[in-house]
């Protein structure tokens, strides 16, 4: 299945992600990493759960508002069967916990402040994802 190459919305959306990362550091002094923010909301719940929950609700609310406001369609298509979503979800959860971050925390915030750990993590998960998609699509012939 193909998807359209969309460089303009990619640049615009990426700039907004960067803006949010800068704002969260400027106001709260925090890395805008989804893994770290989320983990503090699981038991044992962090004492500073308030801003974490608010950030998460805002993140969930944004596409909701875009859809309700109409006009702005948010592209979404998940071609993966549910059992693989469960397996993949578990692997992602365990991986980002031990890896101390994901695309937002390591890939954006960490590399932006030249962290060697984040650079190594990002190269590793990008390479692993490319290799996995290659095996799934071109060796196994799909899930």
């Amino acid at each position: 299945m193909t998807t359209d190459f969309t460089p303009i919305s990619a640049l615009g959306g990426g700039a907004l992600i960067g803006l949010a990362a800068v704002a969260l550091m400027a106001f709260h002094g925090r890395i805008a990493g989804m893994t770290g923010i989320m983990t503090g909301l699981l038991p044992p719940i962090a004492a500073d759960w308030g801003w974490r929950a608010a950030f998460l609700l805002g993140a969930i609310g944004a596409p909701m508002l875009m859809v309700f406001a109409g006009g702005q369609a948010v592209g979404f298509d998940s071609p993966v069967p549910a059992p693989w979503l469960i397996v993949g979800g578990l692997i992602v959860g365990i991986g980002v916990y031990f890896g101390s971050g994901c695309t937002s925390g390591h890939g954006v915030c960490g590399i932006a402040r030249l962290s060697p750990r984040s650079l190594a993590a990002t190269l590793t998960f990008m390479a692993a994802a490319v290799a996995t998609v290659f095996v799934v699509r071109h060796v196994l012939g799909g899930l």
Binding site: G33, M34, T35, M38, L56, A59, I60, G61, A62, P63, M64, V67, V74, F76, S78, P79, V80, W84, L85, V87, G88, G89, L90, I91, V92, G93, I94, G95, V96, Y97, F98, G99, S100, C102, T103, S104, H106, R117, A120, A121, T122, T124, F125, M126, A127, A128, A129, V130, A131, T132, V133, V136, L143
Partner: peptide, 30 residues
Amino acid sequence: PLIAGSAAFGIGWGITGFCPGGAIPALGLG
């Protein structure tokens, strides 16, 4: 833990197409 965890995350991302920062906002799409 950093490298092995990141490798595992990449495998799960490659299976599903979801990363944490992408999946949480996607919840809002229902």
